[in-house]
């Protein structure tokens, strides 16, 4: 199987991110940050925090 280089993976990721608008990219980063902070929990309660981010970013 040919090895897919890190550059190819980075390019795929870049292409996905380019499909988002600037506020959407900010929202994505904020969601990931919240999820990472709560990763240790089985059932994290992040809904309210995400909604707050949505309202802050898309207003």
């Amino acid at each position: 199987m040919p090895t897919q280089s890190r550059e190819q993976v980075a390019e795929q990721i870049r292409s996905v991110l380019l499909g988002l608008s600037e506020p959407e990219r900010r929202l994505l980063n904020a969601v990931l940050k919240l999820e990472q902070e709560n990763l240790y929990l089985d059932r994290p309660r992040v809904k309210d925090d995400i909604i707050a981010e949505v309202r802050r970013v898309i207003s």
Partner: peptide, 27 residues
């Protein structure tokens, strides 16, 4: 409506990123 659209786009992007990362890790 705009917020819902943004959520939909971001969720789609997260699904694509999950696929890319999963395959990268598996490989």
């Amino acid at each position: 409506k705009r917020q819902l659209e943004a959520i939909d786009h971001v969720a789609d992007a997260l699904a694509s990123l999950t696929r890319i990362q999963k395959e990268d890790v598996r490989r």
